[in-house]
Protein backbone atom coordinates (compact mmCIF):
# COMPACT_ATOMS: atom_id res chain seq x y z
CA UNK A 1 0.00 0.00 0.00
CA UNK A 2 1.43 3.35 -0.93
CA UNK A 3 -0.01 6.80 -0.40
CA UNK A 4 -0.15 9.75 -2.77
CA UNK A 5 -0.16 13.47 -2.00
CA UNK A 6 -3.96 13.65 -2.18
CA UNK A 7 -4.37 10.93 0.44
CA UNK A 8 -1.82 12.65 2.69
CA UNK A 9 -3.83 15.87 2.37
CA UNK A 10 -7.02 14.01 3.27
CA UNK A 11 -5.47 12.40 6.37
CA UNK A 12 -4.01 15.78 7.36
CA UNK A 13 -7.48 17.32 7.17
CA UNK A 14 -8.88 14.52 9.39
CA UNK A 15 -6.03 15.22 11.83
CA UNK A 16 -6.55 19.03 11.71
CA UNK A 17 -3.05 19.70 10.40
CA UNK A 18 -1.89 22.17 7.77
CA UNK A 19 1.18 20.75 6.05
CA UNK A 20 3.64 22.49 3.75
CA UNK A 21 4.78 20.84 0.50
CA UNK A 22 8.00 19.54 2.03
CA UNK A 23 6.13 17.91 4.92
CA UNK A 24 3.66 16.31 2.51
CA UNK A 25 6.48 14.91 0.41
CA UNK A 26 8.27 13.45 3.47
CA UNK A 27 5.04 11.95 4.85
CA UNK A 28 4.25 10.28 1.51
CA UNK A 29 7.49 8.36 1.67
CA UNK A 30 7.69 7.72 5.44
CA UNK A 31 4.06 6.70 5.98
CA UNK A 32 4.19 4.67 2.78
CA UNK A 33 7.17 2.74 4.11
CA UNK A 34 5.44 2.04 7.43
CA UNK A 35 2.22 0.92 5.69
CA UNK A 36 4.24 -1.40 3.47
CA UNK A 37 5.75 -2.96 6.58
CA UNK A 38 2.31 -3.29 8.19
CA UNK A 39 1.11 -5.30 5.18
CA UNK A 40 2.90 -8.31 6.61
CA UNK A 41 -0.19 -8.80 8.83
CA UNK A 42 -1.98 -10.03 5.71
CA UNK A 43 0.19 -13.15 5.74
CA UNK A 44 -1.97 -14.35 8.64
CA UNK A 45 -5.42 -15.87 8.30
CA UNK A 46 -7.47 -14.23 11.06
CA UNK A 47 -10.93 -15.05 9.84
CA UNK A 48 -11.87 -16.95 13.00
CA UNK A 49 -9.90 -14.86 15.48
CA UNK A 50 -11.74 -12.60 17.91
CA UNK A 51 -10.24 -9.08 18.08
CA UNK A 52 -8.55 -8.12 21.34
CA UNK A 53 -9.19 -4.49 22.14
CA UNK A 54 -8.13 -4.58 25.78
CA UNK A 55 -5.52 -6.71 27.56
CA UNK A 56 -7.63 -7.54 30.64
CA UNK A 57 -10.91 -9.41 30.56
CA UNK A 58 -12.88 -6.52 31.95
CA UNK A 59 -16.52 -5.70 31.68
CA UNK A 60 -17.99 -2.28 32.33
CA UNK A 61 -17.03 -0.85 35.68
CA UNK A 62 -19.94 0.98 37.26
CA UNK A 63 -20.08 3.18 40.32
CA UNK A 64 -22.72 5.08 42.22
CA UNK A 65 -23.42 8.55 40.87
CA UNK A 66 -22.20 10.54 43.86
CA UNK A 67 -21.88 14.26 44.19
CA UNK A 68 -18.23 15.23 44.73
CA UNK A 69 -16.15 18.35 44.73
CA UNK A 70 -14.32 19.10 41.49
CA UNK A 71 -11.23 21.19 40.76
CA UNK A 72 -12.11 24.84 41.25
CA UNK A 73 -13.22 26.64 38.09
CA UNK A 74 -10.89 29.61 38.49
CA UNK A 75 -7.92 27.26 38.74
CA UNK A 76 -8.94 25.43 35.57
CA UNK A 77 -9.58 28.67 33.69
CA UNK A 78 -6.25 30.10 34.80
CA UNK A 79 -4.39 27.71 32.48
CA UNK A 80 -6.64 28.33 29.45
CA UNK A 81 -5.38 30.40 26.49
CA UNK A 82 -8.38 32.75 26.65
CA UNK A 83 -11.44 33.08 28.89
CA UNK A 84 -14.38 35.41 29.40
CA UNK A 85 -16.37 35.26 32.61
CA UNK A 86 -17.13 31.63 33.37
CA UNK A 87 -16.36 30.53 29.80
CA UNK A 88 -13.50 29.54 27.54
CA UNK A 89 -13.23 32.08 24.76
CA UNK A 90 -12.69 30.93 21.15
CA UNK A 91 -12.68 32.72 17.78
CA UNK A 92 -15.81 32.99 15.65
CA UNK A 93 -17.48 29.61 15.06
CA UNK A 94 -19.99 30.74 12.41
CA UNK A 95 -19.08 32.96 9.47
Amino acid sequence: MSLDIREIEYIASLSKFVLNDEEKRVFVSQLGEVLLYIEKLNQLDTENVVPLVHPLNMVNVFREDEQKESICREKVQSIAPSTMGAFFKVPKVLE
Binding site: I11, S15, L31, I38, L41, V49, V50, P51, L52
Partner: peptide, 25 residues
Protein backbone atom coordinates in the same frame (compact mmCIF):
# COMPACT_ATOMS: atom_id res chain seq x y z
CA UNK B 1 -1.74 10.73 10.69
CA UNK B 2 -1.09 6.98 10.69
CA UNK B 3 -3.68 6.45 13.43
CA UNK B 4 -6.33 8.49 11.70
CA UNK B 5 -5.65 6.66 8.45
CA UNK B 6 -6.01 3.25 10.16
CA UNK B 7 -9.33 4.31 11.69
CA UNK B 8 -10.71 6.12 8.64
CA UNK B 9 -13.72 4.98 6.70
CA UNK B 10 -12.86 2.19 4.29
CA UNK B 11 -9.59 1.25 6.02
CA UNK B 12 -10.81 0.32 9.53
CA UNK B 13 -11.25 -3.40 8.79
CA UNK B 14 -7.99 -3.72 6.89
CA UNK B 15 -5.90 -2.03 9.58
CA UNK B 16 -7.41 -1.57 13.05
CA UNK B 17 -9.60 -4.67 13.08
CA UNK B 18 -6.91 -6.83 11.51
CA UNK B 19 -4.33 -5.58 14.02
CA UNK B 20 -6.68 -6.22 16.96
CA UNK B 21 -7.12 -9.82 15.80
CA UNK B 22 -3.39 -10.39 15.48
CA UNK B 23 -3.01 -8.79 18.91
CA UNK B 24 -5.13 -11.64 20.28
CA UNK B 25 -2.85 -14.20 18.60
Amino acid sequence: MLGNYALSSGYYDAYYLKASKVRNL
